[in-house]
Amino acid sequence: MTLMKLTLRIWRQKNARTEGQFVTYQLDNVSEHMSFLEMLDVLNEGLVAKGEEPVAFDHDCREGICGACSLMINGYPHGPLPKTTTCQLHMRHFKDGDVITVEPWRARAFPVIKDCVTDRSAFDRIMQAGGFISVRTGGTPDANALPIRKRSADLSMDAAACIGCGACVAACKNASAMLFVAAKVGQFAHLPQGQVERKERVKAMIGRMDVEGFGNCTNTYDCEGACPKQIPRRFINEMNRDFIWAALTE
């Protein structure tokens, strides 16, 4: 097992109202088998032992499915490894002597609460605006009672893979939430249950997205590259089409 010495430059900020700054920490004996978050756990144990405030960061499932973990690591959302959340990023992708810069997501719509924790409730409010189906679907239907083409079911599932982590916003030069919203619109747009409110949904969710202060898409696609769930840009295209169609047929 290789042990590494690392230098960490981590964003520390007491709360939403104070200014933050980078603080440098040295860590010896980092195992290559640790996840990035376990490495931060070790750092925090050391800080607590010294009577210092541990570094706050978001995490929950630690298995790449909940979307809680975040962190801008060396200039990449969720770190330099593609298709991987921070909790699934392992220290073997770093090497002895590395300097690692760790920052929170930066966006007006994601204000920092503490250290590297941001308030991502703007995403929840976008979901509340239209990320649901309000037609009565009854009890659990029999399998195949409502025929759905395999292709449509697959596309809907592809969109539904979005875990709402916000890496797309973090990666975008405009802090645009288009990939997230496109995934959440797209998961319904390909299913029959999603058709009734299709136009209202896209207008309401985009309206909320704009109100929350996210930027506008300029089709640079850093979101797609940063997304741990590989949500493809096609959903942004489809959402654009749906929105334009909804506006024209109003």
């Binding site: 801008m72 930066r106 990666a171 802090a175």
Partner: peptide, 17 residues
């Protein structure tokens, strides 16, 4: 778009752009 990110990153690398 500039207003959407009031605090710049210390380190930010392009991915697919």
């Amino acid at each position: 778009n500039n207003r959407a990110r009031p605090t710049a990153y210390k380190l930010k690398r392009p991915i697919s752009s």
